[in-house]
Design a binder for these strands. Structure first.
Lengths: 360, 360
DNA sequence: TTGTACGCGTTATCAA
DNA sequence: TTGATAACGCGTACAA
């Protein structure tokens, strides 16, 4: 914790050169003899020089343009939180010459995604933060950015094909695994557990399938029921539901809840739309069916308070946006090492601890 | 997000004064006529001036000495995490002229606490961060700091008597309430729930009693058992255990677990010492008894993996230290509004989401 | 290949 | 009560 009062000027003095020379070796600008270079480097090592980032930001008029490509927060409320996180980061980084421009796209429109990603690319930013909901269409952009060596950071959705600077988000597999625990924990009797996908293009959305894999694996690794207890082990079923406005949505759910041959113990909704299922459980008075979903949306919170939803897994969307921007700033502005993978915690939310997670 | 390129110089020009004058009204240094003062203030308002903190930190050679009084992390491992959080904050703030000095005391020794708090006070710091484990002895220091108008921030333990600048930590009452939910959730049969205090001076430790109150209130607010189901409602019992090295510790636990008349459903340990109870449950093969405690200590994690401990509530110790230091910096360095109460989330930890909370 | 000098926005000193 | 000006540490043109 000693004060590192060592400045460029100190190094210059110790190496018998001018500050200009030190600056040149510091930034590898060349135009300096190898002999002097080595000497200066040695002095920097000896004095344990650490640049004063504050002075650097002030002295240089360098600015950094960041582009953010994410779904429009006015269309889907989930995206309000990352939006806010990005805004917070932008505010803190403004002093360092960082400006953030948003390129919001329509959640369900591939064309809109492509258009906005294109616009972001055209703006020739210094870095890009993107929620690549569309797998196939994203790859082409990644390739271009790599070719132009524009660093880009992924959040919300992980795509491993081309190496991004970093991914900030959750471990989808493990969150499905955790969801398994939450629907099953404490349930004495065997029965059926449902994983419901609502209005998802499963084929083009990798992380939904990873959630399902995790969910199934949780049950697979459970110890077999005690020898005394009869009955089949847990039965895991997945169901792909259409958009809730589609009549077949209600039809399928009613059929499921009317069926007395299936001992339904719990439902895990793989997206933030648990609130679409909740009213059915409430109407059928199925307090015995555990319901688990994602995200602290207002409607989900409502059913959490009503004891219809038992647990929510918080995807930390606010933090995803905030840390996503900072990953770029760390790379560009602060020249810090950026971890290629930053898993945010899987927060378990109940009625009792909810209040500390909302409105952060 | 528009660039606020407005500087002191701009205000000065617009008000027909010099930067020196603007600076004086900005910092209420006086020596400026009321008329000019009003004019400058108006200009600042009009231009929506926001000071450039970077330039401020660079320009002023002001340094801030912060003192931290907390238990020694080498004696009790719990205190490693806040220690690290404080170190992280110190590192980030060094550039702003902030230096942090630690005054570690021995967790169980009142005299040590008093001595270190005294030493911290003697160093005449600009701000103090303290974990005031000893209620009575803390009050005298608070009074002195208030008299000398040294801002101080509390963490870990909340003491309301004298107004601190801020408290950073958990809501003890609510965490007890949450613990109630976690031990009881999903349990079909009525029975007894135990809250165990281990080696705690309950009279001098407010937050332990708050945890118990929350725990009891959880059960009190539960809806009565369904009309059909017989049996008494949940029965909540509290027990004060001595230090685990005391022979009576084992004696009391064994007696409890041997007693077949009590239908023990769950145990809530009010401190981070759940790992002291776990071996007994394991020895008695009481997988049916839910065990809930605090903090991600190595020993607790061990029993979490063994399925003996079911849930841990994370007190976010790392964040407590980090945010505690930043509360002081926000006040002193950045002149920001500091909320008097900053409740950190009550993280629910299971085997399945543990990994994202350790080693942050 | 090297050194000098000015500017970044703010603070602080000193003279007016 | 005011204004001019030298720092703060670094980046960077430009001169040598």
């Amino acid at each position: 914790m000693e004060k590192s009062a060592v400045r460029i000027k100190d190094i210059a003095a110790k190496a018998n050169v001018s500050v200009g020379t030190v600056d040149r070796v510091l930034h590898n600008r060349g135009r300096v003899s190898e002999k002097v270079r080595q000497k200066v480097l040695r002095m920097m090592e000896e004095l344990d020089y650490e640049p004063n980032l504050i002075a650097r930001a002030l002295g240089s008029n360098r600015t950094y343009q960041l582009a953010v490509v994410q779904p429009d927060h006015l269309i889907d409320p989930y995206w309000q939180a990352p939006w806010d996180g990005i805004g917070k980061a932008a505010k803190e980084l403004k002093q360092y010459g960082v400006t953030v421009t948003m390129y919001p796209y329509e959640l369900t429109e591939v064309a809109s995604f492509v258009a906005q990603a294109e616009a972001a690319t055209q703006s020739a930013p210094d870095g890009i933060l993107i929620a690549p909901l569309f797998y196939r269409e994203s790859l082409a952009f990644f390739a271009r950015w790599q070719a132009e060596s524009i660093p880009y950071v992924l959040f919300n959705t992980y795509i491993a094909e081309l190496p991004a600077l970093s991914y900030v988000g959750q471990d989808s597999y493990q969150s499905g695994f955790l969801a398994g625990k939450l629907v099953q924990f404490g349930q004495a009797e065997p029965g059926t557990y449902l994983i419901a996908h609502i209005a998802e293009d499963i084929a083009n959305s990798l992380h939904v399938t990873q959630k399902e894999r995790g969910f199934r694996d949780y049950f697979a690794q459970l110890p077999a029921p005690a020898p005394g207890a009869p009955g089949a082990p847990a039965n895991v079923v997945s169901i792909a539901l259409p958009d809730p406005t589609d009549p077949s949505f209600a039809r399928q759910l009613n059929r499921l809840l009317d069926d007395e041959t299936v001992q339904l113990r719990g439902i895990f909704v793989s997206t933030s739309k648990a609130y679409e299922i909740a009213p059915y459980l409430q109407a059928y008075h199925r307090e015995d069916v555990r319901l688990v979903g994602y995200d602290l949306l207002e409607k989900n919170i409502h059913f959490l308070h009503e004891n219809v939803i038992d647990f929510l897994i918080n995807q930390n969307p606010h933090e995803q946006g905030y840390q996503g921007v900072f990953a770029l700033a760390d790379q560009l502005v602060f020249k810090k090492e950026v971890p290629p993978l930053k898993y945010l915690p899987l927060d378990i939310i109940t009625k009792e601890n909810l209040r500390y997670y909302v409105g952060e």
